[in-house]
Amino acid sequence: MAEQKAPRKLCLIASKGSLDMAYPPMILANAARMGGIETHIFFTFWGLDIITKKKQNGLNVAVVGNPNMHPWFHIPTIIGVIPFMSAAATWMMNREIAKLDFPPVGEFMEMLVDAGAHVYGCKMSMDMMKLKKEDLIDGAEVLGAMEFMDIAEGAQIIFV
């Protein structure tokens, strides 16, 4: 009963770069840090956009092939192919996010780094996308998958 529990540690793997999939790992990481839990986020593949300076504030919502849109702005695939539908959905979602007082992606990531979350860009994905460390936000490190596995030892891991 009174056994000493090891401090909790959370590792998140962020693999998606659409606007709707960028928020879950950031919100979970933030909640963990607010509760004093050691937190690491590994950004891989499209997830790298979230910590790429030039891209992070231009993330979009895909309307085609996205079955999860909220009912009142559900856009049928046939309509979704019309130009600017994605831009319209992105605009709407950004507005809803701001209403909830969630910061835009860039500001959210800055807050997470300040909050002491460890942020990593996946080396292989970066090579593939021709990205350098300087392209990532301040505070981000570049890491290989195996090194991340070392860090993740004993942690709870969430893949997004």
Binding site: R33, M34, G35, G36, M111, D114, A115
Partner: peptide, 17 residues
């Protein structure tokens, strides 16, 4: 009080503390 300082003031997790 900004984020960084908030975490320094309450190292065990400012959300709770």
């Amino acid at each position: 009080v900004q984020t960084k300082e908030l975490y320094e003031l309450f190292p065990g997790g400012p959300g709770k503390l």
